[in-house]
Amino acid sequence: MSIQHFRVALIPFFAAFCLPVFAHPETLVKVKDAEDQLGARVGYIELDLNSGKILESFRPEERFPMMSTFKVLLCGAVLSRVDAGQEQLGRRIHYSQNDLVEYSPVTEKHLTDGMTVRELCSAAITMSDNTAANLLLTTIGGPKELTAFLHNMGDHVTRLDRWEPELNEAIPNDERDTTMPAAMATTLRKLLTGELLTLASRQQLIDWMEADKVAGPLLRSALPAGWFIADKSGAGERGSRGIIAALGPDGKPSRIVVIYTTGSQATMDERNRQIAEIGASLIKHW
């Protein structure tokens, strides 16, 4: 067993022997301040990774656009098919120029040779490549099948209805392509620590998230040296922004954090800054 596999296998073990965790309302004060600064709703939840206990939450059962955070769930569904012998990570998928959609920095470079399922998941999570996500959605049967996968996990809230990039439209009061912070946090925890996926697939999923290259201005910008984070960000229309993450000190994750916002007129930089400040408060009061 590799060191990384050992780390993920012992996530519940280490967490069980940690000192009790206590909620700190100071972080919620910052979440509410972010709402004021952005002029928009902000949803927040913080779960203990081992027990699933909610440590703090704000608007945990209000719907927010998922945006690209759905790509972690998508690759979880792909990995479940791999575990069941219905898919192979090494299978190569070929596609054409007509398949390319807006923001496809990886797939646009491989029109000639195609990409493997493993490479597509890596591109979808680490670079948020939209064509990679659409190609992977095709392998599982489309958005409705991802929703069905989530329902089978016990998540009857999260739903995907459309493809990239239309799913980022974020129309107010439109339930399409949305989740709730509580539902997303619980589902992410199941994917990373539950028995739904094999140990190898859980490790692969967290490795992809740990290698995320496009979430630097968010929670990662607030992390002290030595902290662990595996995350996936999302951005959408109407001032929408979000991030889902597993993080913790001492090089291992111990909490799940989900943050979503929508309806702001603020710039992307300002949305990023507010999420980073929430992260800084979380870490300060850990």
Rank of each mutant, 00 (worst) to 15 (best):
E195Q: 13
F149K: 07
Y44H: 03
G234Q: 01
P249E: 08
G242S: 07
D161A: 06
V106G: 06
D83C: 04
R241Y: 02
L188G: 04
I283C: 10
V78G: 01
I243H: 02
A245G: 09
P172R: 11
I171M: 15
W163E: 11
P181G: 04
V157K: 15
N130Q: 04
P25F: 08
S201T: 08
L205W: 03
L38D: 06
K30D: 05
R41K: 15
I11K: 05
P20L: 02
N152T: 14
M153H: 10
F149H: 08
P217L: 08
S57G: 11
G251W: 07
E277K: 11
T179K: 00
D36G: 15
R162G: 08
W208V: 02
A200P: 13
V8N: 15
G194W: 08
A183M: 10
L38Q: 06
A266M: 13
P217Q: 12
H110N: 08
A40I: 05
D161L: 03
T267M: 11
D99G: 06
H285A: 09
F58N: 15
A77V: 11
D129I: 00
I206E: 09
M153Q: 09
K32A: 14
R220T: 03
E108G: 12
L47S: 06
G194I: 05
A230R: 01
W163R: 10
I244F: 03
D250W: 10
E56M: 08
P25C: 09
A245P: 00
S221V: 11
S281G: 08
K53N: 14
V78P: 00
E175T: 15
L196D: 11
D155C: 01
F14P: 02
G141W: 03
A34C: 10
M127G: 06
I206R: 12
E237P: 14
A230T: 02
I229H: 02
Y260P: 00
D231K: 04
E145A: 14
L38R: 05
I11W: 12
P172D: 13
I243S: 02
A245Y: 01
N173D: 14
Q97S: 14
I243K: 00
T107C: 09
L47F: 07
M66P: 01
V29I: 15
G194N: 10
H151C: 10
D48P: 02
K284G: 12
M66N: 02
N50P: 15
P253T: 08
A133G: 12
W286P: 03
L10F: 10
Y103T: 05
R220G: 04
A84T: 14
D113R: 10
H151D: 09
A266C: 13
A215F: 03
T178K: 02
E145K: 13
Y103C: 05
I11N: 05
G226R: 10
G263W: 04
T187M: 08
K109A: 10
K53S: 10
M115P: 01
G39L: 11
G236P: 00
I54M: 11
L135S: 04
L188W: 04
L199E: 15
N272L: 02
E35N: 03
T261K: 03
N168G: 11
K213G: 08
Q88W: 12
G85D: 10
L47I: 14
A200T: 12
K213C: 12
T116G: 04
I283A: 08
N130V: 01
P60N: 10
R176D: 06
K144R: 14
G234L: 01
I125P: 00
H5N: 14
K144H: 10
T193V: 15
Y95K: 01
R63S: 08
A77G: 08
D177G: 03
L188F: 14
P65S: 05
T107R: 01
V31P: 01
G90Q: 11
Y95T: 03
A170D: 08
Q37P: 04
G234C: 06
N173F: 13
H285S: 10
A245L: 03
L74S: 03
P165E: 06
G279E: 02
R63E: 05
Q274T: 15
L55E: 08
L38C: 07
P20C: 05
I229P: 00
A133H: 01
A266G: 13
E237I: 10
L205G: 00
A182T: 13
E26Q: 10
L111M: 13
T126P: 02
K284T: 15
S201A: 10
I206T: 14
D33E: 13
A225G: 13
Y103R: 03
A40P: 02
D231M: 04
V21E: 05
T131R: 02
G242N: 03
L120G: 02
A148W: 09
G142H: 04
M67V: 10
L150Q: 05
N134C: 04
C18G: 10
T267H: 12
L197M: 09
Q203E: 15
A185I: 03
P20E: 12
G52M: 06
F14C: 09
D207P: 02
T69M: 03
D48Q: 08
E61T: 13
L79F: 04
G90P: 08
A148N: 14
P253R: 08
T262Y: 15
I278R: 00
R118F: 11
A148H: 13
K144A: 14
L49K: 04
L219E: 03
V21K: 06
I54T: 11
K232N: 01
S68Y: 00
K232L: 00
D155Q: 02
L55G: 07
E56Q: 11
G142F: 01
R238Y: 13
I244L: 09
R81L: 09
F149Y: 10
P224H: 06
M67P: 00
E169Y: 12
W208Q: 03
P181L: 03
L137T: 07
K190P: 03
G90S: 12
R189D: 08
P25Q: 13
R92D: 06
V29A: 14
V106S: 08
S80P: 01
G216W: 08
G234Y: 02
I283Q: 06
S201N: 12
L120R: 00
H110L: 08
E145S: 12
I278C: 04
P105N: 05
E237C: 12
T186R: 14
E46S: 13
Q37G: 11
G226S: 11
A16T: 11
L135A: 06
R159S: 08
A246G: 06
D99C: 06
H151E: 12
T158S: 12
P60H: 12
L160R: 01
I278Q: 00
V214K: 08
P60S: 13
G263L: 06
L218K: 02
L282K: 02
T131N: 04
V72D: 00
G248Q: 01
C75Q: 01
T178Q: 03
D113C: 09
R162Y: 03
E87D: 09
T262G: 05
D269G: 13
Q97V: 15
S128N: 00
V214N: 07
R220K: 06
Q37Y: 15
E102L: 12
F64L: 02
E277C: 07
S281V: 15
Y260N: 01
S122A: 14
H151F: 09
G248S: 03
W286Y: 07
R91I: 04
Q204M: 14
F13M: 15
T138P: 06
W208E: 03
T131V: 05
G154M: 06
P253D: 07
K213A: 15
A246V: 13
P224S: 06
E35K: 03
L38P: 07
F13Q: 05
M1C: 01
L100F: 09
L111F: 09
G263Q: 06
L89E: 06
T147K: 08
N134W: 02
G39C: 10
L74Q: 02
L73C: 08
E166R: 11
Q4W: 08
E164G: 00
S96N: 14
L100C: 06
E166Q: 14
T179L: 01
L218I: 05
M115H: 03
K30Q: 10
L218V: 04
C121T: 04
K190N: 14
L205N: 01
R91W: 04
R202S: 14
T186S: 14
D231Y: 04
D177H: 01
G236C: 03
L10M: 12
L73F: 08
Q97C: 08
G242W: 00
N272R: 03
S104E: 01
S128T: 01
D207W: 12
T139G: 12
G52Y: 05
L150K: 00
T158K: 00
M67A: 14
R7E: 08
L136W: 00
